[in-house]
Each structure stands twice: as C-alpha cells, then as structure tokens.
Design a protein around this nucleic acid. Structure first.
Lengths: 346, 346
DNA sequence: GTGAAAGCGCTAACAC
DNA sequence: GTGTTAGCGCTTTCAC
C-alpha cells in the first residue's frame, strides 16, 4: 500500500518523506532539523538536499507536542503606543540568526483581555513569553512563569525569582524630568499620569510619579504644590485634565506627560486652548518615541533605549528557554533628549 | 501503575484527566469540547463541570494535529500605520463570541520578511490568514491560499478565485480627493505616493493615483500638469519630496498624501518649510485614522471604514474556514471627512 | 449515545 | 552513527 498523501495535514511534505527521499531514518532527519549531535557530515548534506528538493518545512504544532515550537509569544498591551515598535525592533534584533519567530497577541489595556491572550499564547505552546506593558498583578505573572519562561518589559518587580525583567530606571527618569524643567527655568511643573493605583508599585507610571515628586521636594516644593493629575479614563480624558489644570488659580507653566502618547495629547490640548508651546507652557514626554522628532511636535522626552530593552529582554528569554532558572532584572539609565517643546524663551 | 503527570507538557491537565474525573471516555470530552453532535445533556453537564473543576484548557497544538487550532493568523505589514489598529478592532469584533484567537505577525514593508512570516503562520497551523497591507505578488498569495483560507485587506485582485478580499474603492477615493480639493478652490493639487510600481495593479496607492489623475483630467488638467510624486524610500523620503515639490516653478497649493501616515509627514514638512496650512497649502490624507482628529493635525481624510473592513474580512474568513470555496470581494464606498487642513480662506 | 483505538508529525530514549 | 519505536494531547472513525 502506497498512500503517502493520505490524511496529511494540508497535504504537506513530512519528515517521513524527506527520510525516504534521502534514504535515511526519520530520526536522522529530526536530528539534522534540530542540529543535534550524532549525525555524520555526509548524512547531514544528503538530508539537507532532500529537504530543499521537497521544500520541506517542519510542522510546528507537531514539534511542539514533544519539543519546542521555536515560537516566542509577545503580549503587547496596546498597539497604539508609539514606543512599542522600538521594542519590537529590539526583539527582532535579538531573534536574528535563530530559528525563533515572534508572534504577537494585542491587548487593549484591559487585564482580563491580557489574561485571555496570555493563556492563548501558552495553550499554543509558545517556548517563551515577552510581556510588554502588561497590567497583570505580579502573582498572575508568576503563575504564568511557572508554565513557561517569561520576561516582562515595563513592569518593576526586582525581587521576584519567577521571571526576568528589562526596564529603565523610571523613578530616576521621573526625577530627571523635574530637574530638567526646573533647570530650564520653569517654576511650576505638573505631571499628567495614568493614575491606576490598582496596578501597584510595579507600574512604571507610578515609579515616574515617585521620582518626579521626590525631585520637586528636594528642590523645595511642598506637598500641596506638587501637582500630579491622573487621566484615568485614558487618552480621551487627557484634554479634560489639561483644561482643569490650566483653569486653576495657579496654573502650571510646564506639563510632564507620563508617556509620549499622553504628552502628545497634552501638546495638542494645550495648543487647542490657545497657549503657545514652549513660551507659555513647556511640555515633556517619556520614551523618546518616533513622533517626538516630528517637526510640529518637537517634543522633549526621556530616552529609555527601547530597542536595547527589547534586545536584552530577548536575550534573557532565550537564556531562560535554554535552562537558566535564576532571575535577571536589568535596569537602563534614562537620558534626557531636549527639544523645542521645553525651550524657555530668554 | 498510576502516573498521570509523567511526561506531560508543562504538567498541564489533559483531556484524559477530565475524562477520568467525569467518569466518561476521552472521546466524549472531545465531543463536548468541539460542541459536536451525539452527546447527552447529562454527559455534557458532567464534563463541563470537570473541566471547570480542573481548570482544563485544551492544548492547541495537539488539537491542530488532527483538527483546528482555533487560531487566526494576521499578517500586519507594518505596525506604525495608524490605520491598522482600526482594522484590528474590526477583527476583534468579528471574532467575538467564537473560540478563535487572532495572533499577529508583524512585518516592516519588506516582502521577503512577509513571506517568512506567512510561512511561520502556516507552519504553526493557523486555521486561516488575514493579510493586511501586504506586498506579496498575487501569485504568492494564491499559493498560500491553496494551503489555508486567506482574506486580504488592502490589495485589489477582484478576479482571483483563490482568496477573498475586503477593500474600499481606492480608485473612487482617489478621484474624490481631487474633486474635493478643486471644490474647495485649490488650483494645483499634487499627490505624494508610495511609488512602488513593482507592486502591480493590485496596490491601493496605485489605485488612488489612477483615480486622482482621472478626476483631474476630467476637470481639464493636462497630463503634464498632474503632479504625482513618489516618495519611494518610505517616510524618510517624504520631507525631501515635499521640498522638491514646493521649490518648483509652479508649486502645488494642495497636497494629497496617499495614506494618513504619509499625509501627517507632509503636514509636518510643509509647516517646517514655513508654509501655513491650510492658507498656503491644503493637505489631505487617506484612511481617516485616529491622528487626523488631533487638534494640531485636524487633517481632512478619506474614510474607508476600517473597522467594518476588518469585521467583514473576518466574517469572510470564518466562512471560508467553514467550507466556502467560492471567492468574495467586498468593496466599501469611501467618504470624505473634511477638516481644517483643507479649509480654503474666503 | 458512548467508548476503544488509530494516528496526526514530530522528538527522544534506546538498541544496534 | 544510525535506526526503531513509543508517545506527546487531541480528533475521528467505527463498533457497540
């Protein structure tokens, strides 16, 4: 009975056909595929030739049943954050030259959706997970990390052993913002933040708030002169928050948006209210994402070296997949990128 | 011998354990899982109870070996295009209430990368593929469509039977741009386009060029008075192209960016050169993506109802997965969304 | 309506 | 160095 194609998934070429064509065993083909030890050069060549001849592509799900799928799952909390593309570039860097492919699950700021996506990724047998800007409680992330190697970006949990993290020093960055604004001559800096206290201390916006407030206190500001306003309902809430801030008795002369995508909204809102930037109000963001450099934005921002964060996160994940069981938590030092939006007139 | 956990992938609960717990066969559990016929209500209830009790989650790779993975692969040509998030919202709409999860492969405008990603998606046993803004030759897409159901968005190939497509009428949209600009009183509209002739007639930018040029000719413009300038090297090339356009003997008084993300660059470049928008130069984009509405952009654009396109594409894909073999090609009619960037002063 | 068992494509333990 | 084979978790005939 000779029915090679019967019942095959999508009629694809299988390892068995490659083995037949090359005149070797399926085990041999598997070894060549995995670049495992115990294959002679002659056999490797024969097998590779047959694979090329038949345009063989290994079936990932089948591999996953026993070994690896060579797939990295990436949970991206939000597709509209202009900082994330940079991280993705870094992930691509880190995966270059390997067999691994990144596949993305895209959230929308809701932690229940994020849970669903992460489960979907684990169920689909990803070899490891990178979580970008997610908002799950640390305990949940630890639970996931028991099932599969995990690295988080944008989530501070330096004491956990269960997973790795790649971050910049957000508390230091927040302080740098305050110091920079005061150095430029601004007298009343305010911050517009995420205001999601439920996220706990691991949240990057919270860290930035801490640093921002601490630096202002160090410069002599009293508690009730430190304005940190939450825009809780997300982007749509920014304009209202800006309006309220600027309508106060002693309005700020500079506004720090906790992340660029917030700061860009602030910029737009401030101008819509008739203020000039940077003359009336200085604006500063965080992330130094691509839109900062656009002429009409020209937004000062804090550079957290996203591409490098992505690259390092990937390196750490591959190490975990290879067997490392201790935790690594890397922290980049942020850098101020001064642009026109904070250029105080002399 | 009682060794339920031995050798299990990640120590997960399997269908066998659910079967034991519920006191039924694995086949019965599988049927409940797939909501297949031939299960009594009593058994269904028992099985569901055990699944919940053990927090069972089916292993997608294993399912994929015989049946479906309930995963939709989405090739997204580019993560920075602000139009795509809207399509994703539509895909989420279309998948709501089903077992399907979308997983994304993210390209960067290179067709070889896109080929790699699509193969990765197919090898990982996706039940179907949605391709957004991809740049593969039709023949390649047809080859993929022989392996797995495919729907494309942003690629015109109305005569192929191999896959479905969801588009707006880009040729009509291009014409609407020209008609609208002339109606606003602009005298010399120009277009900045992708200029990738290698993509062939299926490309949306090409369709928009055709419509734009045809409408100008219909309004009495001669061939050499119709300016359609390519910015071939992508976004970085836009500023240079704008500068060249405006430095000519008879510079345009309005510029059409073939897509919003180009038009936003045009806006920035025009202002950087010292021109006022819309007084000196009118600007119009295409896609009506979220940034158009930002105060400082206030960009007129063509609405192609992205969310609906995403939703319809998903519907078509699910139909294909369910067995439809004839092709469907849907075309939405575009709509002008007039904003400040084309408000000719009286 | 229910269950036993074959088998999807691959990996890995083990025999040779 | 090379091949044989059990089995990963599930779906799907096919008996009963």
């Amino acid at each position: 009975m000779d029915r090679p194609a019967s019942g095959r998934i999508g009629g694809r070429v299988t390892i068995r056909e490659v083995a037949e064509d090359a005149g070797v065993s399926v085990a041999a083909v598997s070894k060549v595929l995995r670049e495992a030890y115990g294959v002679s050069d002659a056999m490797r060549l024969k097998v590779r030739a047959s694979m090329a001849k038949l345009s063989y592509r290994p079936h990932s799900a089948a591999r996953g049943m026993r070994g690896q799928t060579y797939t990295i799952g990436v949970l991206m909390a939000d597709i509209k954050n202009p900082f994330f593309p940079e991280l993705i570039d870094g992930i691509d860097d880190g995966l270059a030259g390997t067999q691994y492919v990144p596949l993305f699950g895209i959230g929308r700021g809701s932690s229940s959706l994020e849970t669903t996506i992460v489960h979907a990724l684990v169920d689909r047998q990803m070899d490891g997970l990178i979580m970008i800007g997610q908002r799950l409680p640390t305990a949940d992330v630890e639970a996931i990390a028991r099932e599969v190697p995990v690295v988080v970006i944008g989530h501070h949990e330096p004491n956990t052993m269960a997973f790795d993290s790649a971050n910049n020093d957000d508390e230091r960055g927040g302080a740098m913002v305050a110091e920079f604004l005061l150095g430029q001559g601004y007298k009343r800096p305010a911050m517009i933040t995420l205001g999601r206290d439920d996220l706990g201390g691991a949240d990057v916006s919270h860290k930035r708030e801490l640093g921002f407030a601490a630096a202002l206190r160090a410069a002599g500001f009293a508690g009730d002169n430190i304005y940190i306003a939450p825009a809780e309902d997300g982007l749509d809430d920014v304009t209202a928050t800006v309006r309220a801030l600027l309508a106060g008795a002693e309005p700020p002369d500079a506004i720090f948006g906790w992340a660029d995508y917030y700061a860009l909204e602030v910029l737009s809102a401030v101008r819509a209210l008739g203020f000039r930037v940077p003359d009336d109000i200085g604006i500063i963001g965080y992330d130094n994402s691509a839109p900062c450099a656009f002429t009409q934005n020209d937004l000062t921002s804090i550079d957290q070296s996203g591409r490098e964060l992505g690259r390092e996160a990937t390196r750490m994940l591959l190490e975990r997949i290879a067997g490392r069981t201790t935790a690594q938590h890397m922290i980049k030092t942020p850098i101020v990128r001064a642009r026109g939006s904070t250029q105080r007139p002399a």
